[in-house]
Amino acid sequence: MTTTAPVIRRRMDPVYLWIIIPTLALFTLAITLPTVMGLFMSFTNSIGFGTWEFIGLNNYVAIFQDPAILQSYAFTFGFAIVTVLAVNVLAFLLALGLTARIRALTALRAIFVLPMVISGIVIAYVFNFLFSNSLPALGTALGIPWLSTSVLVNPDLAWVAIVIVTTWSAIPGTLLIYIAGLVTVPREVYEAADIDGATPLRRLTHITLPLVAGYVAINMILGVKNFLNAYEIIVGLTDGGPGTSTRSIAMTIFTGFSGGDYAFQMANAAIFFLIVVAITLVQLRFTQRGEKA
C-alpha cells in the first residue's frame, strides 16, 4: 500500500462526523448515561426520586439471599435453554422443508412467517384464551383430568405453555435466517455427495449443518439474548404465576419501577447485564472459532 502525504494530512470527511455524532450522542444520552446512573443508584436506597442515601453493597447482598430472585434466574435460564433448542430444531426442520422442491412454496413460506407480524402481547392473550377455555373444554369432553383445568394455573406445567407460545412466535425470525442460509449451500456439493452414495442423514450432518454453522450460531445468540429478556408473552399468559413459578428476570426488574424498589432492582439489572455480556462473549468466541475451522 502506498499512501501519499496529502492523504494523511487531510482531515476526516465531515460526512462521517455527521453520521456518527448524532448516533453517538443519542446512544450516550439514551443508553450509556442511564446505565451509569442506574449503576450508581444500585448502591443507594433510592426509590427513583426524593431523598436517598448510600447503603453500600446491601442491595447486592440482598439479591444473593433472595430466593425469589434466584428462582427467577433459574426459571429464566431454564426457559431460555429449552426454548432456544425447541425454536432452532423446529425452525431448521421447517427451513429444510421450505427450501426443498415442493408445491406452493411461496404461499407456505408466507404462512409460516405470519406469526412474525403479530405482537407478542396479542399472541399471548390469544393463547391465554385457548389454554384457559378451549383446552379445558376439550379436556372435560374427553375426560382427561390434567387437561380439564388450565395448564396456566398448574405450577408444574405453566412453563411448558410459555415455551410453546414463545416458540410459536419466535420460529419465523429464526426460520428466515435458516432459509437464507440453506439457499447459499451450492447444489454441486449435494450432487457430489449423491455420487458418493451418502445417505440423507449423512448429507445433513456432514454437508448441510457444517455449511450453515454460522447461521446456527447467529440464531443461537439472538435466541438466547431474546429469551433471557422474556417479558410480554409471560405477562400475557401467566403474569408470573401461578404463585411466582414463572416470573422472569425482566419481570422482577420491572417491578422495581412500579413497586418503589428501584435501587434494589437496579442492582439486579446490573448483575443480569454482566451475565448477558459474559454469555455473549463466550458465544462469540465459539462462533469465531467455528468459522475459522
Binding site: 401461578p242 418503589g260 424498589d261
Partner: peptide
C-alpha cells in the same frame, strides 16, 4: 405489603394448595 413482595402470587399459591407454613415463612 410493599409491591416488592409478590404477595398476590403467594396468595394464589396458597389457594391452589401450596404449603401454608413454608409460603408464609417465605
Amino acid at each position: 405489603v410493599p409491591l416488592a413482595i409478590p404477595l398476590a402470587n403467594h396468595v394464589q399459591s396458597m389457594v391452589l394448595g401450596a404449603d401454608l407454613r413454608s409460603t408464609l415463612a417465605g
